[in-house]
Nucleic acid binder design. Structure first.
Length: 786
RNA sequence: GGGCAGUUAGCUCAGCUGGUAGAGCUCGCGACUUACAUUCGCGCGGUCAUAGGUUCGAGUCCUAUACUGCCCACCA
């Protein structure tokens, strides 16, 4: 047992917190194997035996894995506070608790970071090193940075089982994630095909919709005239508007609204696309807005997602008049396809050339400056170029419906409730999920080709794939021709592995079960009890875990989802380096201590609500901790001559009204705190808990009871010497002792350091736990035998 | 354009299933009381965004409106 000194003066977390960390670190309290009854560490086999068939005996949270390459930010760390609060509470309720820590390789972002931080300073790039070398050096680098990230988790008091810290690219995890892909493939839920994708020209990879964001920008709207092949009455051309004139080279139709009276007589007519002299039809789609622009939409299915959708819809309804797509911009950002002299130009050059040529032909009507929300890459903020590409997709239809049902039925509960609507909305509108990324850092696809796979953008504007020179129409065709296979290991000599890696969310989406399976705890600990994360990754991460969890295990991954708010800077704005309002954990810890920061994270906050780092609040929290410190020291001192208080029977003590009132209040607090933690409303009840301790217990009760505790007056004369006074004094001492115990326990999930530190000096029976982590939560009728 | 939150004391926010407004900070006054000045006591301060409605009674329910924030989106 450590020895914690009750030092004089104000509470100093710089002394107490490191001492407590050492104490915890020297014991196995954070492990679910820790047996608090016998005070030994059970074997994992014994733990599993104990839990088998008794899911109520454990409480499991898989901690969201932060990026492995750096230190977690204050938002990640706030999550640890919530997860830890739940873990500590249930531990005190007698459950075997596992808080499972991990680290994420962070896909695109991870690759960007190592290229910039690790390789560029050494003069290395993907051009001058092998993929193997890149992977190995990055892995080694991440192994080092990961250790630093772990320090912060520990420092904030997260009682996670650090022996089990798992990395997303640990071999066992990789194998399991790959197995999921294979199973999806076997179940016909993953396919490779040429579809329109969000292409990031900088990262040179496809992105899912959710991996993009919108950015405001100024743009020029150009109004272009497309001549009719045969004039209709006096009408010789129609006008279309576009902010990307170069894409007109890939137009395959012009669309009008079927109800637009102005264009009724043009339905089915033909236009001659200028510059390339290609004939394109005028088709209809209800999605075209009559009020926007000219009411005529140029259709470029290969370079605009909505155009692609219109094309699919039209073709489904009009198979005989079907419209095709022509890809005119390749992944390098150069013009390609059947476009004559523009071929080979950059998109920017082509834009200028197209405009000049329209002007020369007298077909340029006018231009307007507009502001628009353009999609950009979430990570590097480069403007997204939609284009046709051969990528792997997950067919989400069935998984999506099951995921919706799991929440609708109440099997999974989202806190706050209103976020359920956000989840439902997103899930209902979910399209097939592109999971291939053209990166080196991540899980390489378990897909093999018999020889070299070549993808080219042909003269006809089509994406052409060849394996060993043999043209394949799609992956299924390649499999039929025995040129491709899905396999976790190489099928043999001459087979080359797919270059793509999985979207990082494809692996994080499997986190709950791959982690537990790695530890051999899946049967006993899945589904997990709760998930805590910030609400902004509800769609990206939570929904994927639900879908993949249901697919792979047939069970939900967790029962409750607690979505915490985002941390803002002192000015109330989002914390970011460019705004200069980033606060470092070290500074806060040094000034206020981890407990005060945890209070800021938790107390007074509720699910989904964002809040800011507020030094005034932190100072208030520090003051509270000092209050708790001094009140405890006072109780220890005032009750020091009360021997073995735990052996005194409550019914034998002559309580005064003030004693009873205080006992009632503390016990009511215990009930309320328990109820609110179970409801995931631990933040608001904590305000009352602080109030109750500070004002009822400290300011009122202690001040009242003091008079009964004095044995000498100011002059040093003996007082309170009657038998009644002595008995009353004992009742007061016992009440102080008893109630402090309740509060220390109630506060422990919130502020674990100071409560652990004080707990050592707290007079307790030999049966009581030496660490407050395993002290019994105060319960009706049971809390008397502390 | 659609959706979701929010609009309560000077500031930051609580007010759960409806019954005549609360906390912290700030501010003013007072107190060196044998745990604590990182303290204690007292006090100032709100027609609960606006307009209607339901109700015996509404920050609390309903309907509009106006702002603020966030998310989504196909203005070519």
């Amino acid at each position: 047992m450590a020895k914690f000194e009750l030092f004089k003066g104000p509470y100093n977390p710089q002394i107490a917190e490191p001492a407590v960390l050492n104490f915890w670190g020297a014991n196995a309290f954070f492990k679910p194997e820790y047996n608090a009854v016998k005070k030994v560490v059970d074997s994992t086999a014994d733990l599993k035996k104990y839990l088998k068939g008794n899911p109520d005996r454990r409480y499991v949270i898989i901690d969201p894995p932060p990026n492995a390459y750096g230190r977690p930010h204050l938002g990640n760390i706030s999550g640890y506070a919530y997860q830890d609060l739940l873990g500590r509470f249930w531990r005190m309720k007698g459950k075997r608790v596992l808080l499972f820590p991990g680290k994420d390789h962070a896909g695109i972002q991870g690759e960007i970071v190592v290229l910039r931080e690790l390789f560029r300073p050494q003069g290395k790039s993907k051009q001058n090193m092998s993929r193997k070398q890149f992977y190995e050096e990055t892995y080694e680098y991440f192994t080092k940075t990961m250790a630093a990230a772990l320090q912060d988790e520990k420092r904030i008091g997260l009682s996670a089982d650090y022996d089990r810290n798992v990395f997303t690219l640990d071999p066992e995890i990789v194998d399991n994630v790959l197995s999921t892909f294979v199973k999806l493939y076997e179940a016909n839920k993953v396919y490779k095909g040429v579809r329109i994708v969000n292409w990031c020209p900088s990262c040179k990879t496809a992105l899912a919709d959710i991996d993009t964001k919108k950015k405001d920008r100024e743009s020029t709207m150009c109004f272009l005239r497309y001549p009719l092949k045969d004039s209709v009455g006096s009408l010789e051309y129609i006008t279309v508007a576009t902010s990307r004139p170069e894409t007109m080279l890939g137009d395959t139709a012009v669309v009008v609204n079927p109800d637009d009276k102005r264009y009724t007589k043009l339905h089915g007519k033909t236009l001659v696309l200028p510059l390339v002299n290609r004939e394109v039809p005028i088709i209809t789609d209800a999605q075209v807005d009559i009020t926007v622009g000219t009411g005529c939409l140029k259709l470029t299915p290969a370079h605009a997602a909505e155009d692609y959708e219109i094309m699919l819809r039209w073709n489904k309804q009009h198979p005989k008049e079907s419209v095709d797509w022509i890809n005119v911009i390749d992944p390098e950002g150069n013009m390609c396809g059947p476009i004559g002299k523009y071929k080979g130009m950059s998109a920017e050059e082509a834009k200028n050339a197209v405009l000049a040529d329209f002007k020369a032909l007298g077909l340029y009507e006018k231009e307007e400056t507009i502001s628009q929300h353009a999609p950009v890459c979430e990570r590097c903020e480069t403007l997204i170029q939609p284009l046709m590409s051969s990528q792997w997709f997950v067919d989400v239809a069935e998984m999506r419906d099951k995921g919706l049902d799991a929440v609708k039925s109440g099997e999974i509960v989202i806190h706050p409730k209103y976020m359920t609507k956000k989840y439902n909305f997103w899930m209902k509108n979910l399209r097939d999920w592109p999971i291939s990324r053209t990166l080196w850092w991540g899980y390489r696809f378990p897909v093999w080709y018999k020889g070299k796979l070549e993808t080219t953008y042909g003269e006809d504007g089509k994406v052409l794939e060849k394996i060993s020179g043999v043209v394949v129409t799609d992956f299924a065709d390649a499999v039929t021709k025995k040129l491709a296979i899905v396999s976790k290991t190489s099928p043999g000599e001459g087979w080359l592995q797919d270059e793509n890696v999985f979207d990082t969310w494809f692996s994080s989406g499997q986190w709950p079960y791959v982690t537990l399976e790695k530890e051999g705890l899946f049967d006993e600990m899945y589904p997990t009890d709760a998930l805590d994360t910030s609400y902004d990754i509800l769609e990206m991460w939570v929904s994927r875990m639900i879908m993949l969890g249901l697919f792979r295990t047939g069970k939900i991954p967790f029962k409750d989802v607690y979505l915490h708010g985002l941390i803002k800077g002192a000015n109330g704005q989002k914390m970011s380096k460019s705004k200069g309002n980033v606060v470092e954990l070290d500074d806060l810890v040094n000034e206020f201590g981890a407990d005060a920061i945890r209070m800021l994270y938790i107390i007074g906050n509720k699910a989904g609500a964002s809040y800011r780092i507020d030094n005034e609040k932190l100072a208030g929290n520090r003051n509270f901790l000092n209050k708790l410190w001094n009140a405890s020291r006072y109780v220890f001192f005032a009750a020091q001559d009360l021997e073995k208080p735990w052996e005194l029977a409550e019914k034998d003590l002559p309580f005064t009204e003030e004693d009873q009132k205080m006992l009632t209040e503390a016990r009511d607090m215990a009930k309320r705190v328990e109820k609110k933690i179970k409801n995931f409303q631990f933040g608001l009840v904590a305000v009352d808990l602080v109030q109750s301790f500070w004002h009822s217990f400290c300011d009122s009760y202690i001040e009242q009871v003091k008079n009964r505790l004095y044995t000498k007056d100011k002059e040093g004369n003996p007082i309170n010497t009657s038998e009644e006074a002595i008995a009353s004094r004992r009742a007061g001492q016992w009440t102080l002792w008893h109630i402090l115990g309740i509060y220390l326990k109630l506060f422990h999930p919130y502020i674990p350091f100071i409560t652990e530190y004080l707990w050592e000096s707290y007079p307790k029976s030999p049966e009581e736990s030496g660490t407050i982590m395993y002290a019994k939560w105060p319960e009706e009728g049971k809390e008397l035998k502390q």
